[in-house]
Design a protein around this nucleic acid. Sequence first.
DNA 1: ATTAAAATGAGAATAATTCTCATTAACAAA
DNA 2: TTTGTTAATGAGAATTATTCTCATTTTAAT
Lengths: 156, 156
Amino acid sequence: MANLSATEISWYYNRLNKCCCRLTKPRRAILDILDDTRKHLSAEQIYKETLKISSNAGLSTIYRNLELLVRIGLTWEFDAGDNKARYEIAKRPGESHHHHLICKKCNSIIDYSASVDNEKDFIKKREKNLSNKYNFKIENHSIDFFGLCYKCSKNK
Amino acid sequence: MANLSATEISWYYNRLNKCCCRLTKPRRAILDILDDTRKHLSAEQIYKETLKISSNAGLSTIYRNLELLVRIGLTWEFDAGDNKARYEIAKRPGESHHHHLICKKCNSIIDYSASVDNEKDFIKKREKNLSNKYNFKIENHSIDFFGLCYKCSKNK
DNA sequence: ATTAAAATGAGAATAATTCTCATTAACAAA
DNA sequence: TTTGTTAATGAGAATTATTCTCATTTTAAT
């Protein structure tokens, strides 16, 4: 707990400030938690984590803030196929964007870096081409591969 | 209504049969509806469509069957970011797999064919490489680009 | 036609998310 | 540092999407 450095905190402060939003205690707690984990937590799970830390944020506050953080691009939301939103921090310093391998059976998620095999270049080119063709302003993307993880493909 | 040809019906019949499942009236209705539209319908919307056709399937039956059809690969499910599942027919004869451009503001969805710009080749290679690296049996994938459609980017 | 298994419909139950509103905290400016 | 304005919070009620239950009905192989 209290993982965020002073630098990170002021960075988040400024990002929020730009939108007339404040870096409140619950927001700091959420960012703290997401920054600290490699997991893809649901709102409920994040809520439980905040209870462990001192910060007692209400569940509705968690939801409200996740929505905000996603909207301004500080966190990233996706659905691993079980009808509940998962959240992860948008970018870590020095770490490149990643995509997912999602197990249909146990819902486990593997992150893989998007920087290998020219994937980044490919996507960039694709985005440009699609933007032009469809007059669509692309802001971000998600690439998910679904299937069976090693464990689940072994167990029948 | 009654869009499915005799050939298509027997194709679906066989696919279901392989899993000891029957081609019932509600199932035929769902496939009929999904086959007929370019839209990405929610369960509720599909339910309403079945009411328009003679077929009066219950909502729970719709959900049950969508789950089945997704599981055996006849339809495809995804989330356009509004926390409700959308469904589309998995493959149309002679049409290649497609991906999505999703507007964050109005939730509209544009399909684009995955067959241009070597996208298909790229994905295939990527799948092979990821399968090996992570010991993960990939069955399918989704690629979604999020942003603003033309209309929404114009309206501020 | 008969029959066993699979599927259905209606609605209750659950789970995830959003809303309401009175109270509190953040922070810019004095 | 105190203050005033405005944003944000917490608690729980309300809503929405989805799943479950179970008695009844269909399906399709025999």
